[in-house]
Amino acid sequence: MLEDLKGRAGLAIEIDNDCFYFNYEEVFPSASVIKVPILMEALRQAESGSININESVQIRHRVGGSGVLQALSDQVVVTVKDLMTLMITVSDNTATNMMIDLLGMDAINTSIESMGMQKTVLQRKMMDFAAIERGINNLTSPADIITSLKVLDQGDFLTEESRKLALEIMHAQQFHDKLSAMIDPEAIFVAGKTGSLPQVENDCAVFKWGNKTAYVAVLMDQLEDSYSGRQVISKVGKYIYDSLIA
């Protein structure tokens, strides 16, 4: 299925001791899946006291694309935790850029490296297409995304409380047209983050059913047809769902 795709694809799946990899160390544009390590760095800084996630902030530097903050009035005040939640659940680009300003791009990249993500880098803010045209993009690999999901779910990079909050936020994901499109959301726990750019379709998720856990990352670029890419990702999600509940 992946080989027949009109585009380039990379996939990594780990279910307990079973693994499936396809171009999993190749580098792809990250699109919005880069927001997962941003969320993790935000929680790390909250633990250290560098930021207060209950602090109120005003919306600034609105950008387009996905999200709701760009459409709200100047009178609206949100918390840092709200920014984190909007960044993941509706992939809000304004919220993401505000989080990058708050956390610092260097700090985010330092934590990305410390988590063992070897080919992932945050080099630009969201919706900065001028940077992309100059060859400056946010990059990652399926292997790195799997690493981040495992660290988020079971590592010691964050406390148990922070890991639980991260999974809850990702479980509230509002986009269900890829990995979770063909599964029963009431039957299985899914915490994920999607991402899209022109010719790019990405998704990653933690699936939990009973005592089984699956970590999944699918990255695609150079797509002739983004809809076909999303369909393939949906089928991957269904295969994993069927495997877990079998």
Rank of each mutant, 00 (worst) to 15 (best):
E161V: 03
N138A: 00
D156A: 09
G155V: 12
S148T: 10
G155W: 05
L158G: 04
K164I: 02
L139Y: 11
L167D: 02
K164S: 08
S162Q: 08
N137M: 08
I146R: 15
G135E: 04
N137L: 11
V151D: 07
A143Q: 13
I146L: 15
G135L: 07
L165T: 15
G155D: 09
E161N: 05
T147E: 09
I136T: 11
I145E: 15
D156C: 07
L139K: 11
E168D: 14
S148R: 07
D144I: 12
S141Q: 11
L139M: 14
S148I: 04
A166K: 03
F157K: 06
I145W: 02
L167N: 10
T147G: 05
E133A: 13
L149D: 01
N137K: 13
A166M: 04
R134I: 02
S162F: 03
G135P: 08
E160M: 12
S141T: 09
L165E: 15
L139W: 09
A143G: 07
L167M: 15
I145H: 03
G155T: 05
D156M: 02
D156R: 11
L167A: 13
E161Y: 06
E161R: 14
F157S: 10
R134P: 02
G155I: 07
L167F: 06
N137I: 12
I145V: 15
T159C: 08
R134K: 13
L167C: 09
R163W: 00
K150V: 10
S141G: 08
E168W: 00
L149W: 00
I145P: 02
A143D: 11
I146N: 12
F157D: 05
A143T: 05
I136A: 04
S141K: 12
E160G: 01
S141W: 01
K150E: 12
Q154G: 15
F157Q: 10
D153R: 08
L165M: 09
T147A: 14
R134C: 05
E168K: 14
K164L: 05
S148A: 15
P142S: 12
P142G: 12
G155Q: 08
D153Y: 08
S148M: 13
I136V: 15
T147R: 09
R163P: 00
S148V: 14
V151W: 01
G155R: 14
L152M: 15
I145F: 05
K164C: 05
L158D: 01
T159D: 10
I145S: 10
P142V: 14
D144S: 06
K150W: 01
R134G: 00
I146V: 15
L165R: 10
V151S: 12
T159F: 01
K164M: 09
I145R: 04
L167Y: 04
S141F: 06
P142N: 07
F157R: 09
L139D: 10
L158M: 15
S148H: 03
K164D: 03
D153S: 14
V151K: 12
L165C: 05
L158R: 11
D144V: 06
S162W: 09
E161K: 14
L158V: 13
S141R: 11
E168Q: 12
T140R: 15
L158P: 09
L165A: 13
R163E: 00
G155M: 07
L165I: 08
S148W: 00
